[in-house]
Simulated scan of single mutants.
Amino acid sequence: MRFSSCLVASVVYLLMEVYVVNGQPLVPAMFIFGDSVVDAGNNNHIKTIVKANFPPYGRDFLNHTPTGRFCNGKLAADFTAENIGFTSYPPAYLSNEARGNNLLIGANFASAASGYYEATAKIYHTIPLSQQLKYFKEYQAKLVKIVGQSNASSIINGSVYLVNSGSSDFVQNYYINPLLYKVYTVKEFSDIVIKSYATFIEELYDLGARRIGVTTLPPLGCLPATITIFGSDINECVKKMNEDAVSFNNKLNDTSLILQNKLSGLNLVVLDIYQPLYDLVTKPSDNGFAEARKACCGTGLLETSILCNKKSVGTCANATEYVFWDGFHPSESANKVISDSLLASGISLVS
């Protein structure tokens, strides 16, 4: 692991010791919106093929049990919850765990294969962000019944909100959908997605959110599946897709700054996952990894969701050596590095 990564990890634990007092988290609760990178099992409860509630998913998670997380173990959001003092994770809102006092630590509304662009979720019969917001409104009503209006408002206003979305809009929709790429340039489509992002943040703000962390797009061209599908038989990151991601991320930063200035009391922080993941992919050995081109599951070239199953031939024995668990999603070990790298930029959300 590089010196900088070790330094970040040291800062993480120092901050935890300094800020997490008497076993209490730094914020009242944590709310999560977005796609498969943060879905903790909501897709288990809807009619879609985009699921991960079967082996080998979850083989390194608590009790070696698949939960619907698109990973062998913990998500970056899980590590983030731990880093800010939570001893359990916000439950998937559609799960049986999301009831009673379990709701006091927040909830996870994310759904794999959803995006800022409303139609992306419709294609895969998953939960669009508009519906995730409706569930959040429903959650608030339940919270009021548990703790009363005043306490509920304090929880809603004082909590941290994580938003991870946008990748599916490009990889699982735009790049493969002639109804989009033949009509819009990637720049035009990015503008449409950014407009949807701004609308979502404003609506989340109107519902009481004040501390919002939103992730950038990752290096889309470096995902094992995108290299396989779009890489023209060259086992390297697809440059054009990475350029598209960087362009989108620049717009995300600019738009977030506008929103920050527009909405009184909003603390909106853009959390860069592009560079940390790009560094893991391009310099895996510097970060303690052995393999970055292939994922652990199956051949490691494409398998994701139902294609990544207990019969997938070639699945690795030790996922800690791999940057990616399946064709689209980082391994638990990579998620840990990514989460730790985000703490410094996101510390204003919890302090």
Rank of each mutant, 00 (worst) to 15 (best):
86 F>Y: 01
97 E>P: 00
306 I>K: 14
141 A>K: 14
129 L>T: 09
102 N>V: 06
253 N>G: 12
276 P>H: 02
350 V>N: 08
184 Y>P: 00
217 L>Y: 08
161 Y>L: 00
196 S>L: 02
73 G>K: 07
23 G>C: 07
133 L>H: 07
108 N>R: 06
94 L>P: 02
158 G>N: 05
140 Q>A: 02
39 D>P: 06
99 R>C: 00
6 C>M: 14
178 P>Y: 10
148 G>M: 09
280 L>M: 03
197 Y>V: 03
281 V>F: 04
258 I>S: 11
29 A>M: 01
216 T>M: 05
343 L>N: 03
310 K>V: 13
242 N>H: 09
259 L>H: 01
319 A>C: 05
219 P>K: 03
48 T>V: 10
129 L>E: 12
127 I>G: 10
199 T>I: 13
334 A>T: 07
245 A>C: 06
157 N>V: 04
24 Q>A: 14
271 L>A: 08
15 L>R: 05
73 G>C: 00
195 K>M: 10
326 D>P: 07
261 N>D: 14
48 T>P: 06
194 I>K: 07
181 Y>I: 13
315 T>E: 06
10 S>V: 08
291 E>V: 07
100 G>H: 12
32 I>Q: 05
246 V>L: 15
238 V>R: 03
201 I>H: 05
115 G>W: 06
70 F>A: 11
324 F>H: 04
140 Q>R: 11
328 F>I: 09
333 S>F: 03
201 I>D: 01
90 P>V: 00
72 N>Y: 07
303 E>Q: 15
203 E>C: 09
328 F>D: 02
14 L>N: 09
244 D>N: 15
314 G>W: 02
215 T>M: 08
117 Y>N: 04
186 V>F: 15
231 G>T: 03
107 A>M: 04
19 Y>S: 14
226 T>Q: 02
130 S>E: 14
3 F>Q: 11
202 E>A: 13
172 Q>P: 00
31 F>H: 05
164 N>V: 14
18 V>P: 00
256 S>I: 01
95 S>K: 06
191 D>Y: 04
24 Q>G: 03
287 N>H: 15
40 A>E: 06
112 A>R: 05
260 Q>F: 09
241 M>V: 03
320 T>G: 00
325 W>R: 05
203 E>L: 09
274 Y>S: 04
75 L>A: 13
239 K>N: 15
166 G>W: 01
305 S>I: 13
36 S>L: 02
144 V>I: 13
22 N>M: 10
15 L>V: 11
147 V>T: 08
26 L>H: 11
143 L>I: 02
164 N>T: 15
169 D>F: 04
159 S>K: 01
236 E>M: 09
228 T>V: 02
223 L>G: 06
